[in-house]
Amino acid sequence: MSFMQTLLGAGAAVAVSAASALAEPAIIYDLGGKFDKSFNEAAYRGAERWKKETGENYREVELQNDAQREQALRRFAEAGANPIVTVGFAFASTLEKVAPDYPDTKFVIVDMVVNQPNVRSVVFKEHEGSYLVGMLGAMKSKTGKLGFVGGMDIPLIRRFACGYVQGVKAVNPDAVVFQNMTGTTPAAWNDPVKGAELAKAQIAQGADVIYHAAGGTGRGVLQAAADAGVYGIGVDSNQNYMFPGHVLTSMLKRVDNAVHDAFRDGPGMSTGLVVLGLKEGGVDYAYDEYNKDLITPEMKAKVDEARQKIIDGEIVVHDYMSDNSCPVK
């Protein structure tokens, strides 16, 4: 029994030190990896921005597989991290189970809704941002054929695709959009080789603008588009710089803001549902020195007009996830 007591003593010491430590915020990245140049990296940038502003530290971890989610969440909660930000819808069921065990810890989940009193759920209107890049793509396309490469085949990604196609058709009703998904498992977020293959197949069919919503897989999509001399459209982070002259624009999804705001609000943050659309600055299209030569003033005027109309509610972009169907193909 004395052995057990030694163990328990050590455990108690850990618990005490955890409680007395300052409540550092923590972030858990999804399987795409912290440096996917897209979704997770946007979250990372938000955390870094907070760090620069406040000079304080945060804790982070990258997962190796699906089964680690619970351990990672509990590990941070036990260590007294607060709030804990989980980046990605795949944390939903784990958070549903873990959050009630730590009622004094605040959790944030991006891209999914978890109905627990200590969880803030941040979701984005990706269809609005995708609509704008779809318009730009259709105006740029010479062949009238465009491509979309999704990551994992889930309603969330179909929401990107549906918004994109609506934007394309708003400019050119006769345009054709080829759509492919990389896979059906989370591995689809980090498979640039397959992303490139899908993009090449779409280019072979005549596509000259390809939009990806595939996290780390998108690197391959943009690469293939640049290699073939056509245009890619980035997602989540601003990816214009990756292949200057070949990335038409990027659909910005401000995951960085979601992370930054959660860290800023700290343990006393509000919980519940937060929806970020064009109006709230949650999504947008990217325009910077890397793509200003690709987007003519006429294109920009047209898309900015639509942007304002969406904000004003004059254009309503259909949300795939509202009824799990898309009015256009």
């Binding site: 699906d66 819808f89 795949a90 939903a92 069921s93 999914m112 994992m152 889930i154 309603p155 969330l156 059906t184 498992t185 989370p186 799990n324």
Partner: peptide, 14 residues
């Protein structure tokens, strides 16, 4: 998991 066992409407294959 993707086609039969996951909850309808759920996005995670579990």
């Amino acid at each position: 998991l993707v086609n039969h066992l996951k909850l309808p409407g759920s996005m995670s294959p579990e």
